[in-house]
Nucleic acid binder design. Structure first.
Lengths: 224, 224
DNA sequence: CATAGATTGTACTGTCAAGTACATTCTGCT
DNA sequence: AGCAGAATGTACTTGACAGTACAATCTATG
């Protein structure tokens, strides 16, 4: 887990039963928050969904904010895990294409519910400073995975030596978040697909002039 | 106003005084909602900020949902107006650059508070169906302005004849929304700038091969 | 000016959610 | 076994907020 900071007022589980209970709480809270937002999720709901009483919530978390921050860490791991095994091997054009397909597929399976991290960021960034920092860290991890893949491609000679991998990674992440938001609002995966294709096109524009293998002209598959 | 549906329980203002009061309410509500979200804004807060009693709120709006939907329409107009005079004349490379600068400037002036429409969409899309439709309509207007500018550029010969202006407009909107979200989360305008530059680069990739004036190679100004 | 309807002020109700207190049961350890 | 501390259940307090009732005041207009 990321957080090993000594926060005074909540208790870390000692027994395995305690750990399981805490995990059940965070799981349930993450699901409810994803569906109804932070403000729309009461601690009674969380307790009910997790099958625990209210006292446990306050036993393991100092207050609602602490629980929500735990949800953020949990959601970050979930989101990034859902994109493996491609996310940490985005070092070829094929990997990027496969990753794109996974992301679109996940979004479809979620019934256009938006990105857990993006929704939390939008709701909390201006309200809870510590939550904002956690979310920024989550986005950093995401972006770093993109950048490392692009760096590898540059090393391989797939990208031009002067390609700005930092900017490209940020462009992909922004397109992803914006595409998810528009898909959520329109209840249609098309905006996400278009946005991702646009970002991938930006990467291809930085392809090396004479690569080992010629970069595919434009394998844009679009569904009508 | 857009809504002429026969909703029974709210009243349209008849006198000029009533109209002014209603406008003050929506103004205040829009500001508070932008700062604290829908769930974080109580009707008491709105009444206090607008200098009216609670009874007026229920005189002009059937319930909180109605007020919020009025806020959405108001925010849509505000957001689009803030991007004039460029938004509806995006028919040259210079206009796009100027528009980009305005958007970044507005975001900076807002102290990285995010996009009013985007925040509302994220909070309401899965909760209030009518609000979702209003927000989708707002995004449609935004995207249409982009697409019309791009269509004009294609007609002028600045873009290739086969340029997919619909996809390009969606790409710009997604980059904008994603960039705003990341800038809000990081409290830094850089992600928005990078994302917009990336989207503009995608448009330039669709520039006509032999334009009337040669398209500038990459006037990327970035502040360290 | 008089009146109907629009507008506004005051006070109230019911509900729900966050957080607290305290008692009880379980679990690891000697 | 028996104890300390962890884990859990029940009941309560407090405050905030959406929505309602009703009375008072203003305003357009005949």
């Amino acid at each position: 887990m990321t957080g090993s900071s000594p926060i005074p007022r909540d208790a870390s589980p000692v027994t395995s039963k305690g750990r399981a209970t805490r995990a059940r709480i965070v799981d349930a809270a993450a699901r409810l928050v994803y569906e109804g937002g932070v403000a729309g999720t009461s601690l009674d709901d969380v307790g009910l969904a997790a099958g625990v009483g209210r006292s446990q919530l306050y036993h393991y978390f100092a207050d609602k904010g602490e629980l929500i921050r735990a949800v953020i860490s949990h959601a970050t791991d979930e989101v990034l895990d859902a994109q493996e095994p491609y996310l940490h091997h985005l070092d070829s054009w094929e990997a990027w294409e496969s990753w794109r397909d996974i992301v679109v597929d996940v979004q479809r399976r979620r019934h256009h519910g938006g990105c857990p991290l993006g929704s939390l960021a939008s709701e909390l960034a201006d309200v809870d400073e510590r939550a904002r920092e956690l979310l920024a860290g989550g986005f950093d991890r995401w972006e770093a995975a993109f950048r490392e893949g692009l760096d590898a491609m540059r090393t391989k000679g797939l990208l031009r030596a002067d390609a700005d991998t930092h900017a490209l990674a940020l462009t992909v992440l922004a397109a992803l978040q914006g595409g998810l938001l528009l898909s959520q609002t329109r209840r249609d995966a098309a905006p996400l697909e278009v946005a991702l294709d646009g970002a991938l096109a930006t990467i291809r524009a930085a392809a090396a002039a004479r690569p080992t293998r010629p970069s595919p002209a434009r394998p844009s598959r679009r569904n009508p």
